[in-house]
C-alpha cells in the first residue's frame, strides 16, 4: 500500500511523466476529435484504428520518398483519408453494415501495412522538437505541453476548429441533426448520407494526422504494432466524454496517462509485471465503457443506417 502510494507520488511529481502523458494523449486526441465528429453524424467509426495505422504507414512512406516531414504529414493525412473513403462509401452509399466494414478494414490494414513495410522498408525523417519560449518554462507541465515536436502543436488549433465547425457552421448544424434525426433532416432537403460521409472523411484526415504524428513526431520509424488498439481507445474516449468535445479530449488525456504509466513506473524504479501493465489502458477503456456507456446522451441515430422512404 505504501509502495503504491509512493509510486503515485513519484508519478505525479515527475515532469517526465507529464511529458509522456502528453505524448501518448496527443495521438488519442487527434483521432478522438475526428471520431467525435463522425459519431456526431451517426457513425460509430471503428475503422479509426485502420485510419491511424494506415496514416502512420503512409506518413513513413511520404517522409522516405520526399525526405521531408511536411510531405510525410500530407501522406499521412491522405492515408487516413483513403481508409475513410472506403468506410464512408461502403456504409453510407452502398448500405453495408458500418461495423462489418470497419472490422474488415482494421484487419486488412494490419496485414497490408506489415506486408508493404517489409517490402519497402522506409527510413523516416523525424520532426524536431520546438521549445516555445516562456511557456515551456512553466514548472512540471511547461515542457510537457510546449517543449514537444511541432506536429503536436497542431492539436492546439485543431480542437477549437472542430468545435467551431460542429457548433457554429451550417455544416455542423446539419451534421448534428443527421446524427439525431435523419428523417427530419431528409425532409428538410439535406443529403443525409453525404453529410455522414463527409464527417467520416474528417475523421480520416484527423486520424491520418494522428498516424503521422506517431511515425514522424514520436517514434521515428513505422512499427507494425505501433497503433495496437489505440484507435479503439480513441473511440472509447468519445463515449467516456459523453459525446462532448471537452469530455472527449479530457478522456483521451486520462487514457494517455495510463498509457504513459506503462513506461513511467518501471523507469521510476517500480517493479510491476510488464505484461499486466501493458493491458492497463485497454482494461481502463473497457471499464469506462462499461460504467459510462449510458451516462452521456449519445446521438439518437448513432449506428443507425439511413434509408429514405417508407418508415
Amino acid at each position: 500500500m505504501i509502495a503504491f502510494a509512493g509510486a503515485i507520488g513519484d508519478v505525479l511529481t515527475s515532469s517526465t511523466m507529464y511529458g509522456s502523458t502528453v505524448r501518448f494523449a496527443a495521438l488519442l486526441v487527434f483521432a478522438a476529435t475526428g471520431e467525435w465528429v463522425a459519431e456526431k453524424a451517426g457513425t460509430m467509426n471503428i475503422s479509426v484504428e485502420a485510419m491511424i495505422l494506415t496514416g502512420s504507414f503512409t506518413a513513413a512512406i511520404g517522409s522516405y520518398l520526399g525526405h521531408s516531414v511536411w510531405i510525410g504529414l500530407v501522406f499521412g493525412m491522405l492515408g487516413g483519408l483513403l481508409v475513410s473513403l472506403i468506410q464512408a462509401n461502403m456504409s453510407h452509399r452502398l448500405g453495408s453494415n458500418q461495423f462489418v466494414v470497419g472490422l474488415t478494414l482494421n484487419v486488412l490494414a494490419v496485414g497490408l501495412t506489415a506486408y508493404l513495410n517489409a517490402k519497402i522498408n522506409p527510413t523516416v525523417t523525424k520532426a524536431g522538437a520546438i521549445k516555445i519560449p516562456l511557456l515551456s518554462r512553466i514548472p512540471l507541465v511547461g515542457g510537457a505541453l510546449f517543449g514537444q515536436t511541432w506536429l503536436l502543436y497542431l492539436l492546439f488549433p485543431l480542437i477549437p476548429f472542430a468545435w467551431w465547425l460542429v457548433y457554429r457552421t451550417r455544416w455542423g448544424l446539419e451534421v448534428r441533426s443527421v446524427g439525431e434525426s435523419p428523417q427530419a433532416v431528409d425532409v428538410s432537403g439535406i443529403d443525409v448520407n453525404k453529410r455522414r460521409r463527409q464527417s467520416v472523411y474528417f475523421c480520416g484526415l484527423c486520424s491520418g494526422v494522428a498516424g503521422a504524428y506517431l511515425t514522424i513526431g514520436q517514434v521515428g520509424s513505422f512499427g507494425t504494432d505501433g497503433v495496437s488498439g489505440r484507435g479503439i481507445i480513441a473511440l472509447a474516449a468519445v463515449i467516456l466524454g459523453g459525446w462532448t468535445l471537452k469530455g472527449t479530449v479530457g478522456a483521451a488525456v486520462v487514457f494517455g496517462f495510463f498509457d504513459a504509466l506503462r513506461f513511467a513506473l518501471p523507469a521510476l524504479g517500480h517493479t510491476v509485471n510488464p505484461q499486466l501493465l501493458a493491458t492497463l489502458p485497454y482494461a481502463m477503456a473497457l471499464t469506462t465503457m462499461l460504467l459510462f456507456a449510458h451516462r452521456g446522451r449519445q446521438p439518437s441515430a448513432l449506428t443507425r443506417p439511413f434509408v429514405r422512404g417508407l418508415t
Binding site: S177, E180, S181, S188
Partner: peptide
C-alpha cells in the same frame, strides 16, 4: 412544402436551428 405528421423536427436542437435547417445560406 409539407407539414409532416412526425419526423420533421430534430428534438435536440432549438426552434431557430430547426427552422433554418436545409437552407443554403450561412448560419
Amino acid at each position: 412544402a409539407m407539414v409532416h405528421q412526425h419526423y420533421s423536427l430534430v428534438e435536440q436542437l432549438t426552434v431557430w436551428e430547426n427552422v433554418v435547417l436545409g437552407e443554403p445560406s450561412r448560419l
